[in-house]
Design a binder for these strands. Structure first.
Lengths: 214, 214
DNA sequence: TAGATTGTTAATCGATTAACAATC
DNA sequence: TAGATTGTTAATCGATTAACAATC
């Protein structure tokens, strides 16, 4: 694999599309497709072929002119770029409805993510298991995170506890936070935060539908 | 309220920030804050004050120079812009872990969204209730959607059923789809689709963390 | 009035699209 | 070879940031 172009900064938009490429390639592979063009791939994802070629070109040359991309090879390359060949240990903080749902996904689809612990404060939940993963009291966070080498924390606690949970995760040594609380969390710059704000989707929908019907 | 500037097209990025403004204003109001500057609001949300003023200026003049924004008034205006003063009837399709979690949110935080029906195909689930909302068999979708004037459908079915569910929702007369299946769904242009692709978050996290640690 | 803060225009930055030479 | 499709440069489009006049 050719190395990515050294110091070039890659746009967030590009990075966010790579998982889509990866997943679609995987599906294609399972269908027995061995070669795919940027045109066909783009059609499946809903992205222009130029976009795909541009995105990929930031990392190297993965295709064959006049032919297309070898599905298997491109998948492997994108997987490597995304770091999906590694093993990531994750923990879920907060067993509400959403935390429970996420815990039950068990293996987050693109392999590599392993749920190693769940944290909560409810005495009724401590010591129980979801999908063979134990629920610990938050007070044991640092201990467990260190012991199990957990790098990513998922925040699914109620909004008012999100900031303190984030702070605890950072103190425990976590490197990345996947935040589902509808609030901005403040953490050091070295921590990578991805926020999912589910309420935005519905509200923006409301905006567009309002306009449509008059 | 001054009307929005007639034919100006408002960017998707702006629309997606309005719910954040709304929610933060609501929290501020609950704290008893009556006036807020773009600077303070931006600090709370993690957006520059210029961004906020620019976004709002697309719809009118809501502030007072040298003073700031009246929280209550700005909230009302943004709520009106987003159509949150309306009542939206929604239905959830697919009672897996995620569908179940969403059904239990009951009142989606910015009021106005009312869960009116849940659809599934599992005979064991049909006829049951989640939070006082009945689970119907998918075959009754058109009937129920019409009867209860449902405008928004939420797709939380497994990937392989997402497209057919979308098609059924459209045939039933739905106007917007909130799609949680990690796949592109094809629907007529008149239908507004918002997609939440939860797997992207973790994969992009993997990318950034890989780079960080070397 | 002086200080603060908005609303808006202009400048910059970044991302997408178009076009096409290179080449399989 | 002719046709197809990539990789990349240039052109366009859109969104953010900076600056500042207006005014409370």
């Amino acid at each position: 694999m050719k190395e990515s172009k050294e110091n070039a900064v890659i746009s967030k938009a590009t990075i966010d599309r790579l998982p889509l490429y990866y997943r679609t390639l995987k599906l294609s592979q399972e269908e027995g497709i061995e070669i795919i063009s940027s045109d066909e791939l783009g059609r499946k994802i809903g992205v222009t072929p130029e976009q795909i070629r541009k995105d990929l070109s930031a990392f190297g040359e993965f295709g064959k002119k006049g032919v297309g991309y070898y599905v298997r090879e491109l998948m492997r390359n994108i997987g490597e770029i995304l770091g999906l060949n590694r093993k990531w240990n994750i923990a879920i903080c907060g067993v509400g409805h959403l935390g429970w749902a996420l815990a039950n996904y068990a293996n987050f689809s693109p392999q590599g993510f392993h749920l190693q612990a769940i944290f909560d404060i409810d005495p009724d939940k401590i010591g129980r298991y979801i999908n063979e993963v134990e629920i610990f009291h938050v007070s044991r966070m640092k201990e467990i995170v260190t012991e199990r080498d957990i790098q990513i924390g998922i925040i699914t606690v109620p909004m008012e506890f999100a900031q303190s949970t984030a702070t605890q995760l950072v103190e425990a040594g976590i490197k990345g936070i996947w935040n589902f609380a509808p609030i901005k969390i403040n953490v050091p710059d070295t921590i990578h935060v991805v926020s999912e704000d589910l309420s935005v989707g519905l509200s923006s929908m409301s905006y567009y539908l309002s306009r449509q019907n008059g």
